[in-house]
């Protein structure tokens, strides 16, 4: 089966100058955990996840810790999040986007989602325009 046959046909995406607070609002309300970033032509140029935002809001030494219980104070996280709320998402997005083309095989999408531990994967056409997303649940639904 091809990716376009199993993907969720949703074009919810943002431009790189969108503010972090706008991104959080949409992720929260739309029930998404990440967001494709597109240019004015609708071409995929980046990707940002909840994880990227949490990482951006945590103290610099976080990655050296094995557990969040080492963070001395949650207020630190809240304060940092408030500080980045009016930053453009470009500052925190991933520029090397893992994605698939609409005519790729579903197995390729499944392989990437499993190996890279992704919740969803943007789908693009030949011109790199966003045409949908493949979520873990899309794969599970079609495997059933």
């Amino acid at each position: 089966m091809k990716v376009h046959q199993i993907m969720t046909k949703d074009l919810t995406s943002m431009e790189k100058d969108t503010l972090v607070r706008g991104l959080i609002f949409t992720l929260d309300n739309a029930g998404m955990s990440n967001m494709p970033i597109v240019d004015e032509e609708g071409k995929l140029i980046g990707f940002i996840s909840e994880k990227d935002l949490i990482k951006a809001a945590l103290p610099g030494y976080f990655e050296m810790l094995h557990s969040t219980s080492f963070i001395p104070d949650m207020n630190q996280l809240v304060k940092k999040l408030a500080q980045i709320a009016d930053d453009p998402i470009e500052k925190y997005m991933q520029h090397d986007v893992i994605c698939v083309e609409e005519d790729d095989d579903d197995l390729q999408a499944a392989d990437l989602i499993i190996r890279k531990d992704l919740k969803s994967l943007p789908v693009i056409d030949k011109e790199r325009r966003l045409v949908g997303v493949v979520k873990r649940i899309d794969l599970l639904r079609h495997l059933l």
């Binding site: 046909k9 949703d10 074009l11 919810t12 609002f25 309300n29 029930g31 045409v131 949908g132």
Partner: peptide
């Protein structure tokens, strides 16, 4: 779209094969 009913609208459309591109409010 917005809220719980917004999710119902989007889900119905996707089930029908319509591509969705809504602003959440």
């Amino acid at each position: 779209v917005g809220g719980h009913t917004g999710h119902v609208v989007v889900r119905d459309l996707r089930e029908e094969g319509v591509t969705t591109n809504f602003v959440w409010v």
